[in-house]
Nucleic acid binder design. Structure first.
Lengths: 208, 208
DNA sequence: TTTCAAAAGTGACAAAAGTTACCGAACATC
DNA sequence: GATGTTCGGTAACTTTTGTCACTTTTGAAA
């Protein structure tokens, strides 16, 4: 167990890992489950040890907008900072691939900031990385048209799953980008004609 | 000076304020000046003591997208977190109303995180607030059409300047929202017809 | 094999946003 | 007061995106 944690979170000190193991609560979730809803109180900081999680921003009238993936070795940045003031979640998090999470209770998370330099650096680093990722998302929607946004989206999916065959329906992509299936179909067809992708049912092969 | 700081940053402890005063470098900027460019190295954490600053995300091909205001009593969240790892700036910051800034050198900023609980809480709080503001910006561009985005933009301007007469040209609004002047003129006219604003040259009176 | 549902293709149209081009009003300054 | 500049108004048009309606394809289950 300590070796496993050390592998996933190589920057953590021995003492921090011991503290985590002594206090951890591990939870398992399977694909499709929602682990955090918009407006819910955050009671834990979440470390991901297995699987992938998709993080969304939700609209009042039902829209979902995909922001970023969380993967093993990462943490939910928002849960770390909101945690301190007992804030409500501003995001919705859905399990993509079956996931295993370490739940760190708030007061501990706060205490460790002062006790463990490596935890402090991890938290600050997570926050910065996430902020930067969100800024890139802003770029894509503020400066780019739907065709480029789709390309950006597909590239991130490839990065996240580590493979070039994406198991995604046009409908799913449409809701992630907050547009309609028809628009995605149209744009994907054009991309296929340009030789950038190969389309099959429920699968998109990325040739870029 | 200590009283002034105490007023602007009421949460800061006496010791922290003393530390700030002992180490501060104050800089003044006038309207229109750019205090930070995209890609520049961040060497200081910035506290705002006077004036207002507009923070932008920049596009490769020259576009600017307005994200949020920084005002007296606030700090540049990104400069605080990027600072630690000697990162490049991801944003561009332009002075709106003449500003006075306290520049805190990086190493100090980092040291204070451990020494001063009130500094630690201020930094984390700034970061959370800014993240939440950016999420709202994402909402507006991901879920809303230009007319609603314009309303959202105007409301934030009113909040920032504290008055209902905005000194803004249509051109300026257009570039802040990364659209054209014509589109803004068109939408503002419609808003005027609905009785939401009153238009004059270089001024928009908000009636909402 | 038949049946059904989900996924994808597509044409036609509507609405929103971007572009071009030109005009006139307001303001500064010489 | 003449002149030039910035700002704003607006019509006409194009492109992009969203929507509707309907069909075909594909895979899974009965």
């Amino acid at each position: 167990m300590p070796e496993q944690l050390k592998k996933l979170f190589p920057s953590f000190s021995k003492e921090l890992i011991q503290d985590i193991i002594a206090n951890q609560v591990i939870k398992n979730f399977s694909s499709g489950e929602i682990i955090m809803r918009t407006g819910e109180y955050i009671k834990n900081t979440v470390l991901i040890t297995k699987g992938t999680i998709k993080v969304y921003r939700e609209d009042i009238d039902g829209g979902e907008f995909f922001m970023y993936y969380l993967q093993s070795g990462q943490a939910c940045a928002l849960s770390m900072v909101c945690a301190i003031n007992n804030e409500k979640s501003q995001i919705m998090a859905k399990v993509d691939e079956d996931a295993e999470l370490i739940m760190v209770p708030l007061p501990l998370m706060d205490k460790w900031m002062m006790q463990h330099r490596t935890w402090y650096e991890f938290v600050i680093g997570s926050y910065r990385n996430r902020f930067e990722e969100v800024l890139e998302v802003i770029d894509s929607i503020a400066f780019r048209a739907m065709d480029e946004r789709l390309e950006f989206y597909l590239k991130r999916q490839v990065e996240a799953c580590g493979c070039k065959e994406l198991k995604l329906s046009h409908q799913e992509i449409g809701s992630d980008l907050n547009t309609s299936r028809e628009v995605i179909s149209r744009l994907l067809k054009k991309m296929e004609q340009r030789g950038l992708v190969k389309l099959q049912r429920n699968q998109i092969e990325i040739l870029m």
